[in-house]
Design a protein around this nucleic acid. Sequence first.
DNA 1: ATGAAAAAATGCAGGCTCTGCAAAATTGGC
DNA 2: GCCAATTTTGCAGAGCCTGCATTTTTTCAT
Lengths: 226, 226
Amino acid sequence: MQDMTGKNSANGGLRERKKRATRAALAEAAVRLAAEHGADNVTVEAISAAAGVSVRTFFNYFDSRDDAFVVIDADASVRVRQALLEAPADLTPLDALREALAAELTEAERQHELWSLHAEVLRNSPHLLVRSLGAHMADEAGLAETIARRISGTAADRADVPPDEGGPGERGRALDLYPRLLAAVAGAAVRVSVQHWCDRQDELAFADVFREVFALLAAGLPAPER
Amino acid sequence: MQDMTGKNSANGGLRERKKRATRAALAEAAVRLAAEHGADNVTVEAISAAAGVSVRTFFNYFDSRDDAFVVIDADASVRVRQALLEAPADLTPLDALREALAAELTEAERQHELWSLHAEVLRNSPHLLVRSLGAHMADEAGLAETIARRISGTAADRADVPPDEGGPGERGRALDLYPRLLAAVAGAAVRVSVQHWCDRQDELAFADVFREVFALLAAGLPAPER
DNA sequence: ATGAAAAAATGCAGGCTCTGCAAAATTGGC
DNA sequence: GCCAATTTTGCAGAGCCTGCATTTTTTCAT
């Protein structure tokens, strides 16, 4: 190793890694317990115990108990935005976004078991489903800004995606209509694709559903034939 | 009066009216208090006191404190769906939905003051914004079914919209991809329109923004010119 | 390595949220 | 006015969540 300081070179030091691990452990414990006993019957105490930390520490990682059931992969949106900026310049915004999302979704299928459990938990408690839907859309602002950057397309803008500074605090950017609309519609597309695919899991491949949805969008949502 | 029973003919008796009034009073009190003191600093006790009922009664009307800030007009979605079924048969699904939503939105501007307060509350607490976004999308399932009915378009289907039976309990219908996608995209369109209009309230008329958004959708979200 | 500084985990006190249950008040129909 | 149905209310208790002080762990310079 060429790192004499003891600080890890890979991803930011042992501190960061431990935090990620703790957070992941809490989220996974929450989902597994909820899948087994029902989300309402899972206390913060139980989640914390399963993850091996104190109750107080749980609240250092999540703002509320429900967040542990809802927030799956906090880094997913960052990866999508990065992929969007790095996509070939000759793709239309809609196509570039489709490819970026497709890559992320096939990536997500690697942890298929946890996703299934997660879906089951949300199915069984509408309360959490609503929160989850809302959480997904909270990313939209950031995605819209990235779309705007891709469209404007200057070289300087190709720099790294800034770490998510959270919340609607920063205004003044991404006020354009088109990027926002595209971000919102893409979110809707993902959601509908997953939903439709879940209902007919045996019949269809997810990739096909996903492509059909984006084809409908690109065609301007024409009335279906009968 | 030609009603000798004492039971009110208009909308279902005094009991119903009182419940509506109580619910509205609670919701309005919640929004006004939140606008003044910040949503986090408003207790259920304060809301209940302002509405003149007990704390326990508050929880007979809302499942959680936050719901009082989030649920605005529970009947709006029913009106939209009714309008959608009654729209001229020669409109495309996208156009019919646009008109139905436009009617509802101009209707909503009548209570403009409360809506402004409501928007301010959500702006100041992202936590509630997330919940609100999620709540709006919970209607999507119902809207998708109505769209499916309009498309299939038999005479029998033109009957009244059944009272919202709540939740994902009834499956088996509206499994088609297109209605779901249209419902989801329309929801996104409304959201983006409102958002964009709020940012540039002085410059633009809402109706214009709304039309532009649907024009973009109908055109297949082409890359904007530069 | 060692000690000081920074960051994170923990325990605890206390207020608020939410639910189940039973009693009291209100409404509708006779 | 009186009975039945519905709604409101108080109360107890469990659980959620926060602020603060303390302890433990990690980082960094010496």
